[in-house]
Design a protein around this nucleic acid. Structure first.
Lengths: 258, 258
DNA sequence: CTGTTAGCGCCTTCAA
DNA sequence: TTGAAGGCGCTAACAG
């Protein structure tokens, strides 16, 4: 009949148990002291009433939400899905909640997501920044004292932790091995979607021994490794051997092959 | 230097704007009346201080969190990933947050997840119940006035909304078409992992025209469709044509073929 | 060890 | 249209 949300509060439990709300809070929240006797009274009262703590109220006071926010590129991609699964496992093991958002590699979506997470008072964020250059919104987050861990890509100027793949080194090692085996025409298909250069231009840039690709997108970092391996082996580069799929998809790659 | 979280509150904004917290709240929360003049004062004060509303505090009062909780089987599976993506899109469009959890098709995980979501005061839940029979934990949720939408599988006794595939009909139609084309030995590989019957036993059960498979796991529902199509066509069933992969994986299916 | 008193940040009556 | 006062559910300081 009644349509109101029940909302059994700590006060209800305290009353039924015949103690103060403070004492009830101490046993239900598992902090501070409490005698065996009172403890049992409170627990059974809570049980009887079907009490569930209101984590919002608790967080409002403690300042901690036991929630971490994630800004992924696209939940649906196997890459992010597997990462999310790992994050989720660890979070659950530690009784943390997870608020997950997609950026679709779009900076405005990312900013929106970050704002939402901030307002929901997450304790920390895991972000895959879609633009290695522009990260003012992230700066304001760390400034607010909320830790950020970056995934896959990083905003260097942020100085926040980063978990990812050493793209340049990986590609370098793979290509170097092929070159060592005597191969000379090594093809590579990469996403290489964003970036202001043609392959020729990038080859020129990346051939400088001091070139740093750390702040580029992953596929360009890998191409840099490709270039370095060639330079070290003294093998000339041929732009015709590089395919730009412009998307991370099998179709895109297939298209480059044909 | 200071390590404290800044925490610009509505009070700070009100003071700077020279109005009461009530007025500041009205413009920042976009409710109630406010004069153009005050409104602008408040907004620029908020801007200057970098004010961000504390959604926890707001939710504590309003009783609504603009958050919906999801209990998926496994984020990482393409099936759930695509569903989550859709949910996420709609949620974002409506300024809702999403708390996502995995059940791993394990009832205890599911119960844990549901409890967490309840305590975080989600406004509603989307659940893929791992046991079509046992759903007491879900009953208590709807009893608390929190709407549930079920995905893929449903607890019938719950009487909650359900979104899914008509497994029986789909399998029935596919098999019926093959039979109509004259084929007689039609194989089927299904997960068929849970369930107390052997294939022979299930054939016997499902051959009854009145048999209802609604509360079974999806793969059994599909097998029911297979059986019905055969019955309607008067084609005898052969248990040897059914493979039980016992998992939703390519490997499992492949193994049945060999 | 326990109860009382204050709030957390915000919204919501209710007067003015 | 505005402000003052009260309270959401809970925890953090005190005294006792």
């Amino acid at each position: 009949m009644s349509k109101k949300k029940t909302g059994v509060t700590i006060t209800d439990v305290a009353r039924l148990a015949g103690v103060s709300t403070a004492t009830a809070g101490r046993v239900l929240g598992d902090y501070g002291y409490s005698s065996r006797e009172k403890r049992e009274k409170v627990l059974s009262a809570a049980q009887a009433l079907g009490y569930r703590p209101n984590l919002l109220a608790r967080s409002l006071i403690t300042g901690r939400t036991k929630t971490i926010g994630v800004v992924a590129g696209d939940i649906q991609s196997p890459f992010y899905a597997s990462i999310l699964r790992g994050i989720s496992n660890v979070a659950e093991r530690n009784d943390f909640g997870l608020i997950i958002t997609n950026s679709d590699e779009n900076i405005e979506h990312e900013i929106r997501s970050v704002r939402l997470l901030l307002e929901k008072q997450v304790d920390g964020m895991i972000v895959s920044p879609c633009d290695p250059e522009g990260g003012e919104h992230l700066v304001s987050v760390v400034a607010a004292g909320i830790p950020i861990v970056q995934i896959d890509r990083q905003v260097h100027s942020l100085g926040a932790d980063f978990v990812g793949v050493d793209n340049k080194q990986g590609a370098h090692d793979a290509v170097a091995r092929l070159l060592a085996q005597g191969h000379r025409r090594i093809g590579m298909i990469g996403e290489l979607g964003y970036g202001d250069w043609s392959i020729e231009e990038f080859f020129a840039l990346a051939s400088a021994p001091s070139y740093a690709s750390d702040s580029l997108y992953p596929s360009w970092q890998r191409l840099h490794g490709y270039v370095e391996a060639h330079r070290e082996a003294g093998v000339p580069l041929d732009p015709m051997l590089i395919g730009r799929s412009r998307s991370y998809s099998a179709q895109g790659a297939q298209h480059q092959v044909e």
